[in-house]
Design a protein around this nucleic acid. Sequence first.
RNA 1: CGGGGUGUAGCUCAGCCUGGUAGAGCGUCGGCUUUGGGAGCCGAAAGUCGUAGGUUCGAAUCCUAUCACCCCGACCA
Length: 477
Amino acid sequence: MRPCAARRPRPESFPEQPLQSLSGPAIPLGQTRQLPSGRDMRLSAYFLPVLKETPSEAQIVSHRLMLRAGMIRQASAGIYSWLPMGLRVLRKIEAIVREEQDRVGAQELLMPTVQSAELWRQSGRYDAYGPEMLRIRDRHEREMLYGPTNEEQITEIFRDLAKSYRDVPRMLYHIQWKFRDEVRPRFGVMRGREFLMKDAYSFDLTPEAARVSYYKMFVAYLRTFARMGLKAIPMQAETGPIGGDLSHEFIILAETGESRVFCHKAFLEKDPLAQEPDYEADLEPVFKDWTSHYAATEDVHDPAKAAELGDDLITARGIEVGQVFYFGTKYSKPMNATVAGPDGQPILLEMGSYGVGVSRLAGAIIEACHDDAGIIWPESVAPFKVGLVNLKSGDADTDAMCEKLYGELAAAGVEALYDDRDERAGSKFATMDLLGLPYQLVVGPKGLKDGVVEIKARATGARDTLSPEAAIARLTA
RNA sequence: CGGGGUGUAGCUCAGCCUGGUAGAGCGUCGGCUUUGGGAGCCGAAAGUCGUAGGUUCGAAUCCUAUCACCCCGACCA
């Protein structure tokens, strides 16, 4: 447990070395300026460049809100820095992805971003991939590339290190930055050139076994997106340049989605989290259940088939947040990735790959969850659970109560961002609404006179007036 | 890659047509007054006008080139 933040001195109480702006008078040699702890989540000490106005380059809502809420900063076209607030969200998304991958039995590793061209020549994709691949040369004029994906790399690893049928099946994944030199990056982190992706790879002995892996990952994906508060609908997909013959895209519905999608309204009623998954059981019925209804992107849309749904048809816009592929021996064959079978004969590995757009999800979740005032984070990915709003910084009673509540939240392990700035109430409310933390704990002198504080739920706007003790009880429940 | 557009203060923009000492609002910093939904007044700091050439006595403004970014389309986790 972290030390209780409330016991830390407030900045203005540092007697010998008051905080100054970085351009202020020089600090005498031998002295170090007191810096806020990396765990001090007081807005007065936090690096959170909130923008009141919308930067002109941002057109879609998630991009605008991410810039305004101080989550990201564009470095160049399609390439972003993640500022502290944005990184917290990215890490939350990662954590959910990681938990569900681990739960399905995938094992995490980490492969490099820079790969050798030689590797890609083995699969034949070095020439096939086109200008989307960022090609670079090292000082020895060796041809390298910044990986747009990792099939070749994982296949080489598995080929060279897994020798026996006993080493199969395995599922491996990593969460690593990718680069695809999109002709036209746009929509902020939703279509960046550099993006963070979870990519998993399955290795099996037979097509039947590979299907089992595919089903497992399919279910893991349903759970992953549901835990982020998203309705992700698996849709039949074309396999594209990665190849193979079984593939689904996971699409979330959002007004600002990139493509039109069509699906049966039954999907909206389904809840992947209704029961605990049993990955040892036969998952084909689950898979069939989720793929029996019509669901198609514009590319593969069949109007005649869709028309049969009548009133059950939903026409909407969608954002792809993940895709799963079974592609058999597409890579194992050219790269000669085999293991020895029980009879000593080599068996070509049956493979699948499974991607989740981790950085894209940050934008996609905002597209799905926002209002005019700002972001509305689902609790599972919120950068903080609670925004503690001090309505009158400098008022002794209000400050004391805020410090107490902040300390109690910290002690209970509840992530809270404390707005202790000397700002007006309206400005603080607007900032909190913009940031979109699930709960605002509002403390002001008027309420304290009656011994009460206020909790506002960001999603509904509902406010409850209650005692500080009851507020803490509710927020730490 | 085709088509269109924009580069002026941290952000949003005006000024350019018709060349003559760089502007506003917001934000930032200081002061006073305020204080429950983006406060008011006073003061201050802050821009080699994307870059490089050219025309001119003089260029943010006119010309040429170039770079960057954005939008529409085709392409894509």
